[in-house]
Design a protein around this nucleic acid. Sequence first.
DNA 1: ATAAACTTTCATTTTTTTTTGAAACTTTAA
DNA 2: TTAAAGTTTCAAAAAAAAATGAAAGTTTAT
Lengths: 177, 177
Amino acid sequence: MSYQNEITIKMEFKEAKNKFVQTWGALGSQWGINKTMAQIHALLMVSHEAVSMEDIMEELQISRGNASMNLRALMDWGIVYKEYKAGERREFFTAEKDLDELAVKISRERSKREIKPALKVLKEVSSITSDNTAEEKHFVDQTTKLYDFVLKADNMLDKMTEYKDNWLAKLVVKIMK
Amino acid sequence: MSYQNEITIKMEFKEAKNKFVQTWGALGSQWGINKTMAQIHALLMVSHEAVSMEDIMEELQISRGNASMNLRALMDWGIVYKEYKAGERREFFTAEKDLDELAVKISRERSKREIKPALKVLKEVSSITSDNTAEEKHFVDQTTKLYDFVLKADNMLDKMTEYKDNWLAKLVVKIMK
DNA sequence: ATAAACTTTCATTTTTTTTTGAAACTTTAA
DNA sequence: TTAAAGTTTCAAAAAAAAATGAAAGTTTAT
């Protein structure tokens, strides 16, 4: 293989990696996860070995503070881990690479942080003592339905992800038949 | 019932309604939907009859432009409808109130707008011609897995929502047993 | 104990997203 | 046709979110 070809191929890989990281970042934004957080996660997902903070900063062109804070957030979500290498002072980071596990953790966190508090409010507002204007009846009825729906969806997601191993594939089978 | 009590009850309803609208708005933000859009939707969801733009502006304390743009967006998502009242010049708005239908429409839109384009990129980047460094092998392997996973999840969601009527309840039964 | 190597924090700046409001546009009734 | 009643658009302003970077903090080797 010629030198020229090798250069070409390397470029293609770097471009692909970059495109993936950018896309994952944009997708994150659209789902309320900050861009850098999603990008760091993407980068770690496709890295075959643990990456230092220095390297993350370099690859994504971000500041030390930004890298540090988003790595912390990713670790709080339980989807990025710190790793220590023998004889190395620096810390290295890896992402959860098992996709079933990743999906489970993201589900759990979002449920805990967002769905559960929303359910609490729904329960609260649907239990007002209503005099019986059509307006208030409709409010109580609709928020009660919403509470039931969200609760059911949340429980189902929980059950779904309980399968643990290969849960998505198993579900596909179960639902299709 | 005394005048005083009636005032108290009215207050409670207004507070509950406001709390619901605020909470729905906050939840929207966390999932990448702008706050006002979510609030308008919340407001329409719990209104027993169609609401004019004027009233929406008034209740949410937002400008005409903001109201107009977000109503347009909600209609593009297919979860808010325009209504014309006989002998009225103004337009009125209602929300999709059937929760099964609402969830289906939100799923469809998000899939179309975000998941499908992401899948396209995943397919693209996972098909680079790789020389066989461990690094590139891992990249291709991981992005391929991700493509398969996201595709499967997207298809499943599609199948799930195909049940149409009362799909969530039906699914719960199917998955639990 | 200390200093080098590294990480975290947070007040300030920058960027991005959302909102405003006035002008342009549309529709309807007289 | 016109003018009144309403809606939409979009450039500019405001608000919100994210990023920076320097100072403070921590850890480790000597």
